[in-house]
């Protein structure tokens, strides 16, 4: 039984690191752009499908780099055409607009690539368990976990040490002031939106390597990321990371005792968090209380 719990906790940690990766892009956009991006899952799926098309030409590794960047480009266009126009309005507008976008992207994927599930080939050496005891730790899942940690660390470093990063952080705190000192906040928000979408794309390609592609793949992955943000704290990137890991592990451990409750438990945690500490673990005060 103890081994079973340890297995499931460890397995949850792997799943959680993946939620965290998705949640970070969402959290970036929510922070500076003030947009609850319901189309995040759609962009993930878009990147995954682009990767599927690219793999025969540039291989898995090439696609893992190029597809998220291309999706970031699409994200930029969408921001310019749609999201940008809604910054001054009530957040409900951008929420509805991105929800609509999510549906548009999903139907577009279905039209172009078909409703049929498609496999995304990953390198063989990653596609097997590392040991027969820990059969659920495949090379690929370990790789996803490491990549989640590395890219999150990279993002933190960028926010800390680059000029763009410092501006994004400052904008998170007080957009009007940095605008007053001469920062082009429209450009800053565009760049930030794009960065968030690149993260979504990265998560999407990685998810496809494990689960394959379906037009609705984003829907299945997006909800845990929202929960991760709420639990970790809106506006805090570190909180999103922590939130992802917590719900992953909690869901894993629950499986050992009561498999049917493994999904409910993450919403229970969210519910408890919203009652006891609405700002989340590391969230800024004031956003939700």
């Amino acid at each position: 039984m103890l081994l079973d719990i340890i297995f499931n906790a460890f397995n949850g940690l792997i799943a959680g690191s993946f939620y965290a990766l998705m949640a970070i892009g969402l959290s970036l956009i929510l922070g500076l752009n003030g947009v609850i991006n319901f189309a995040h899952g759609g962009f993930m799926a878009l990147a995954a499908y682009l990767a599927f098309t690219l793999v025969p030409y540039v291989g898995f590794w090439g696609a893992l780099v190029i597809a998220p960047l291309l999706t970031g480009g699409v994200g930029y266009i969408v921001e310019q055409l749609v999201v940008k126009r809604l910054y001054l309005r009530d957040p409900l507008y951008s929420l509805l607009a991105t929800f609509g976008l999510a549906l548009i992207i999903q139907d577009m994927l279905r039209t172009i690539w078909g409703a049929q599930g498609l496999p995304l080939a990953i390198p063989d050496f990653l596609n097997q368990p590392l040991s027969s005891t820990y059969f659920f730790v495949t090379g690929y899942r370990l790789f996803v976990m490491v990549l989640a940690v590395v890219s999150t660390a990279g993002l933190f470093a960028a926010l800390r040490f680059t000029r763009l990063g410092v501006r994004i952080r400052a904008g998170n705190k007080d957009l009007e002031t940095i605008s007053a000192v001469g920062v082009n906040i429209l450009l800053l928000r565009s760049a930030n939106f794009m960065l968030g979408i690149v993260f979504a794309g990265l998560a999407g390609v990685l998810a496809a390597g494990q689960l394959g592609l379906t037009p609705t793949m984003g829907d299945q992955l997006i909800m845990p990321s929202f929960v991760a943000i709420v639990v970790g704290g809106v506006g805090s990137l570190l909180g999103s990371l922590l939130g992802g890991l917590i719900i992953g592990v909690a869901s894993g451990i629950t499986t050992a005792f009561y498999p049917a409750g493994s999904e409910v438990v993450i919403y229970l945690i969210m519910g408890v968090m919203l009652i006891a500490r609405p700002r989340g673990l590391l969230g800024q005060e004031g956003l939700f209380e």
Partner: peptide, 20 residues
């Protein structure tokens, strides 16, 4: 056996139970 909700994408936790 384990009952799996429709639309499940990650089966890893169920597979750990099956293997056990």
């Amino acid at each position: 056996g384990a009952l799996v909700p429709v639309g499940t994408s990650d089966f890893s936790s169920y597979l750990i139970q099956a293997k056990a």
